[in-house]
Design a protein around this nucleic acid. Sequence first.
RNA 1: GCCGAAUUAGUUCAGUGGUAGAACUUUACUUUCGUAAAGUAGAAACAUGGGUUCGAUUCCCAUAUUCGGCUCCA
Length: 581
Amino acid sequence: MNEDNLNNIRHSLSHLLAGAVLSFYPDAKLAIGPAIDTGFYYDFEFSTPISDKDLEKIEQKMRELMKKWSTFEKKEITVRDAEKMFAGNPYKLELIADLKKDGSKPTTYTSGDLTDLCAGPHVASTKEIPKDAFKLERIAGAYWRGDEKNKMLTRIYGLAFESKEDLTAYELQQKEAEKRDHRRLGKELDLFCFSDLVGPGLPLYTPKGTIIIDELQKYIESVCRKYGFEKVKTPHMAKRILFETSGHAAKFADELFAVTSPKGHQFILKPVQCPAQTQIYASRIRTYKELPIRYMESDRQYRAEKTGEVGGLNRVYAITCEDGHSFCRVDQVKQEVVNMVNIIRDFYTSLGLWKNNWVSLSVRDYAHPEKYIGDTKDWDLCEKMLQEVSDEMGLNAKKCEGEAALYGPKLDFMFKDAMGKEIQIPTVQLDFATPKRFNLTYIDNMGKEVNPVMVHRAVLGSYERFLVLLIEHFAGNFPVWLSPVQIKIIPVRENHNDYAKKIADEIKAQGVRVDFDNTDEGMGKKIRAGKVNKVPYMLVIGDKEIEFGELALEIRDGAKQEKITLEKLKTKLQKEISERL
RNA sequence: GCCGAAUUAGUUCAGUGGUAGAACUUUACUUUCGUAAAGUAGAAACAUGGGUUCGAUUCCCAUAUUCGGCUCCA
């Protein structure tokens, strides 16, 4: 079966859904009902609210109608007839008006006693619809045409596939994704939490979660230092004028948090890091000789997201951003971009994510220059330079119009995680505009004041989203260097405690995070706890180990234990931790 | 923000118009154990605020929080 057929099935099912709904709620108004990736939906305006308890009877009705309906009869009608036919339905009338504007002819499809304004196509006969490969999934609210100014309709989602196997496979995959869900694993592995008193969208990191974040930060900073980045710190809030100057006040408008005090202070919580960093650059005269000047900072920034959109770590009010900026001369820009692409490539390669990836050369929306700041000339140059870097480094970047940042074009790097979900995190962005807005300058070799170029870059993006990626990609089985506990040591009996402790201390002295578990519990239980917590390595230490001087290493991913001497184990751990893999 | 659902112990779940039951966790004691949960006893919860009621964790209303969804176009 090809994709068109599947779409026909899904679309036909949405008509069946409409028919079934109308049989129970004759005064429900139909809006639209397309086929989607996993099935279909139909939007209705109900006069009385329905609940998901009603889905069962509606689905049953669909199955009944399937037997009664046979074909979908297509008919081309005039706009006037269409307007008459759907007179009581504002949604269809709006669609008809659109058709009229485009000069296209409305068509209807009739099956059973339902005639719907519809572009088709459909299955030739309802017999083509597999009976056991669809089900109604859930009820949701949806604005007419997705616009929150419009009326809220009730959407009924259904799953539909070619076969029962496909449906089952999809549901299984959903279950697997649920097991990896960072919200669930975050709780199970004790990485972060939320508090009613602190507030939604404000994650609290536990000691274990903090270890992961600190490790990431230490690593990325050490890599960036090699490329000349220096760490800076800027405050969480600043005067509004800072963001008005940068253009972020306009861009983020209703997403800014304002801070006031009874004494009359008024500040804005920073929505981005760059404006404050420009002021470090601006703190004294710069010369062409000291460029590029590179600052990096991992700090919180704040955005007032829509209340209905915060959830888990994906969308939060307080974002920890790993951000860096390079202030450089035009003739240094390309090298800076190359450096940053190298950092990104190395980092993601080490995590095993540098495959199935693609790069977007995100350029401006040429039809709407008003959405951006800066000169057209600068934009042209920036876009050209990024194209050259892509060509020279073999990135094969795909040009995506309208995806640029406020102040300049960028290279965005896309990956697929273990579940096939597309991740867009790292980015390198060119910016001629911000230095001009802040009047940043350096003295060039002719003694003239010139604006530098800013190159923005993010490798991890935000720690929050990066943690989501890590948790879900690895299903909580973090690489050793990121694991909150790297090795768990379990004495068999009380009289092995001393020996085991000695080994634990020796390993700990190597800078390894060791959990020495001499609690009064059965060792089976301790091993289970270690497995549940996804600790990469465990050592069980008893008579045999003491007698033979060899350790039995339990490996998280392996079924078998490995015999290893303490010295070899120390070397192995050291290697894995320093190799970041 | 809007539509819908949910909220019972630290966690995962039962349950009821007469204030609750389990497992894991935890605490104490017993047990000293060789690769995914030892035994016994204890501690621990109906999100918050109103209302209806003789009586509310249960019904109703608000609030908070969480979850699903809010243009893959007729």
